[in-house]
């Protein structure tokens, strides 16, 4: 079997995600033909089996928006990798005008602009994540795959949503998964329930996919959405 072609493409941001991916290049080149700036080959005009996009999309930048659309068109599976690309992340707080850059004001997760197949939060995800994910996509099923597909339909997930949807909704069971998953210790257990320290939340979304309740809600909602969209296709709406 020939190796799949994979494009790794960075749209900007702190470079944490590209660096994390770089650390698995040695493993990655064994399972795929890797196209990326760092290895000196990028070609947005050819077709790819997978495209892994890191960093947020800047809505004020027409070139980047066009690039992203082209990547979508040319790849079979598009993966939004890392918090900025998948759920917004800390870049949502960028106001523009800071010295020396950024000049732009509106950063968004890429699913606001194009259809995304899988979205992976994490600021940045640990290197091994990408390899696990590709293996999992190849096998084509499972709870976690459903989950990352569901995240692709949610361009906004953070500790605030965890509080709203799970904790304040009375669905939290107090397992502590979210607390252990937060990179900034923005969540703490008080009387067996997590509490959010808003100033500490970088909106990375990690807690939401680690929560057994939230992950289940996300998957279920994505199924309903899919059903609704196929119904509307049938009825021609």
């Amino acid at each position: 079997m020939s190796k799949p072609a994979i494009l790794i493409y960075d749209l900007g941001g702190c470079e944490g995600c590209p660096l994390s991916i770089m650390r698995v290049y040695p493993q990655l080149i064994n399972i795929a033909n890797v196209y990326t700036k760092c290895l000196g080959k990028v070609d947005l005009d050819r077709e790819y089996d997978y495209a892994v996009v890191t960093g947020p999309i800047c809505i004020n930048s027409p070139e980047h928006v066009e690039e992203l659309k082209k990547i979508r068109k040319n790849s079979r599976v598009l993966i939004a990798y890392g918090s900025c690309a998948s759920v917004g992340g800390i870049i949502l707080y960028a106001r523009g005008g800071q010295e020396p850059r950024p000049e732009h004001r509106v950063y968004a997760p890429i699913s606001r602009v194009v259809r995304v197949d899988y979205a992976i939060p994490g600021c940045p995800p640990a290197p091994q994540m990408l390899i696990s994910l590709l293996n999992c996509i190849r096998r084509g099923k499972g709870y976690f795959l459903d989950l990352f597909r569901a995240v692709a339909l949610n361009p906004k997930l953070s500790g605030f949503d965890l509080m709203d949807e799970v904790v304040l909704n009375g669905l939290c069971v107090g397992c502590g998964a979210c607390v252990l998953s937060c990179p900034t210790n923005a969540l703490q257990m008080i009387d067996n329930r997590p509490d959010l320290i808003p100033e500490k939340c970088i909106r990375c979304g990690t807690c939401t996919v680690r929560c057994p309740r939230f992950s289940q809600i996300l998957i279920q909602r994505s199924r309903l959405l899919q059903k609704a969209s196929s119904l509307s296709r049938i009825s021609g709406v």
């Binding site: 992976i120 939060p121 994490g122 600021c123 995800p125 640990a126 091994q128 994540m129 696990s132 994910l133 999992c136 976690f144 252990l180 998953s181 990179p183 990690t206 996919v209 680690r210």
Partner: peptide, 8 residues
């Protein structure tokens, strides 16, 4: 999830 998909 932590074991298979390390997000941090």
């Amino acid at each position: 999830q932590v074991k298979m998909f390390p997000l941090m």
